[in-house]
Amino acid sequence: MFNIQTENSKEMQYIMASGKSVTFQDPLSIDGQLMTNEFATFNRGIAATGNTLALRLRVKADSGSEIFGLRNINIFGEAASDVVNVPEPDHRAIFLCAALGLLLRKR
């Protein structure tokens, strides 16, 4: 879905949570955009159909200082035409089922 690669000929300056500025070699880029230590939003459409979506992230790192994080993955889709919406029961039906369950339990 996304082209994630190491930019071997570049370095990137990052501001740590402490406020300290550090420089690291070989920053990552996603679709050509260099990654910072701030989360960024990326969108991608998938022209396919199905009822299962599997997301897999495979990462191979060559040192102990690489970090990659994902947050708030949102998946949007359109309902198939054969989907039937089932209405939710109102509070009276739920109460009636609970009362019947209690009556049957006492027997």
Rank of each mutant, 00 (worst) to 15 (best):
S65P: 02
T49G: 10
N3Y: 03
Y14T: 01
T52I: 13
N72P: 00
R56P: 00
I67V: 15
L70S: 10
D26Y: 10
G45E: 12
P27F: 00
L55M: 12
Y14W: 02
L53T: 06
S29W: 06
T41N: 09
K20W: 00
N85C: 09
F76A: 15
Y14F: 06
G69L: 10
R107E: 13
L53F: 05
I94P: 02
S63I: 05
F76D: 15
I73R: 08
V59W: 13
G19D: 04
V83I: 15
D62C: 11
A54N: 13
C97T: 12
L103Y: 13
N51E: 14
G45L: 04
I30R: 11
K60T: 15
I15H: 05
S65L: 12
L34Y: 13
T36P: 01
L55T: 10
A61M: 11
A93M: 06
G64P: 00
E11K: 04
F39W: 08
L96S: 10
Q5W: 04
T36E: 12
L28Q: 02
G77A: 05
K20V: 01
L100Y: 04
L55A: 08
I4P: 00
A40H: 04
V84H: 11
F2W: 09
T36Q: 09
Y14H: 00
E78Q: 12
I67L: 14
N51W: 08
D26I: 03
F42Y: 13
G69E: 10
S18T: 12
M12H: 10
T49I: 11
D26R: 09
Q25I: 06
N74S: 14
I75F: 12
R92G: 08
E11A: 11
S18G: 05
R56K: 14
H91E: 15
R58W: 14
L96C: 05
F2D: 05
V84S: 11
R58L: 14
S9F: 11
Q13L: 07
I15Q: 11
V83H: 12
L96W: 02
S63C: 11
N3E: 05
V86T: 11
S29Q: 10
E66W: 07
L70R: 10
L55Q: 05
E7H: 01
N3Q: 04
I15Y: 06
M16A: 04
A98H: 12
D31L: 02
L28T: 03
V83Y: 14
V86F: 05
